[in-house]
Design a protein around this nucleic acid. Structure first.
Lengths: 151, 151
DNA sequence: TCACAATAGTTAAGTTACTTAATTAAGCGG
DNA sequence: CCGCTTAATTAAGTAACTTAACTATTGTGA
């Protein structure tokens, strides 16, 4: 298979993946019910990304927006939902009253982790079947594509 | 970097890429104007994917929907737009009057190719900086992820 | 051969996840 | 203190999907 064909396949597959990621999986819905969250919780890619980004400590709305790759208003919406479900909370930044810091509601830390883990497991199942070099190459490619799209 | 971290990064980067692909690039808009198409042409990922899928000959609406990974009504819409811009045309299937075959309008073959090439170039620029093995590993990973998402 | 189920495509209606523009509130430099 | 910038939100609109329902065919088995 030549490079040209590889490029074509990537061009076809990337969007398929993007769409697939946007839909909540059946297993995710089960998990949500099991956690005692309201049944109508819809956690899209953006929500999961925000939860991951929060796993290393509090972040401002702007930081989250950048990490996830959406506009600030979009992140505001995402956080509204997460806050509505009691998974995160907002509090003022001590030094700068313009910024709003977002962090896990302590009790929800574990629930959030379980939800995120479900997405993680999906990727893991694939990564585990790759060699060390393949996994690295895949991530490298992904990073390069993101970088290229930002120029 | 451990596997766990690789998985986390993939989980963050995939959706970023998905969103990025959805937005038409500035260069694409230029190309559209240069081709003499109406300025308000919006070609999203789905449209580009459909054009790629058509590059190997006529396809039915259902086949295209499957190749692109969307529902049939969604593909109907995509084709409406492409047809409206005079890039593809529908004609009845000779043997089965239920199915609608879609193909390039001959004149537009080259224009379509140029538009698709722009997306291709973006990927190519990245793939060209990878070794043969890396490129293969990347594609393999992508395929595995898509397969895993369909189970 | 004829009723009936299955398939291909489209239409209709609704939803979701975004976008940009405008607004509010706060910090910062002359 | 006044204007400029930055952070977040609100408001309004849009694009790309979804499911459900409908139309027009085609295959099928009593």
């Amino acid at each position: 298979m030549g490079r040209q064909e590889i490029v074509d396949e990537i061009l076809m597959l990337l969007p398929v993946l993007g769409r697939e990621l946007g839909r909540p999986s059946a297993g995710e819905l089960e998990e949500i019910v099991r956690c005692g969250l309201p049944v109508d919780v819809q956690l899209s890619t953006g929500h999961i990304q925000a939860l991951i980004a929060l796993s290393r400590g509090p972040r401002s709305v702007g930081e989250l927006a950048e990490a996830v790759g959406v506009s600030r208003p979009a992140m505001t919406q995402i956080l509204d939902r997460l806050e509505g479900h009691g998974m995160v909370r907002r509090r003022p930044h001590p030094g700068d009253r313009r910024v709003v810091l977002v962090e896990y509601v302590p009790v929800m830390r574990e629930v959030a982790a379980r939800l995120v883990n479900r997405r993680r497991a999906w990727i893991s199942r694939v990564v585990d079947r790759m060699s060390e070099e393949e996994a690295r190459a895949f991530l490298k490619g992904l990073k390069m594509l993101v970088a290229a799209s930002e120029e």
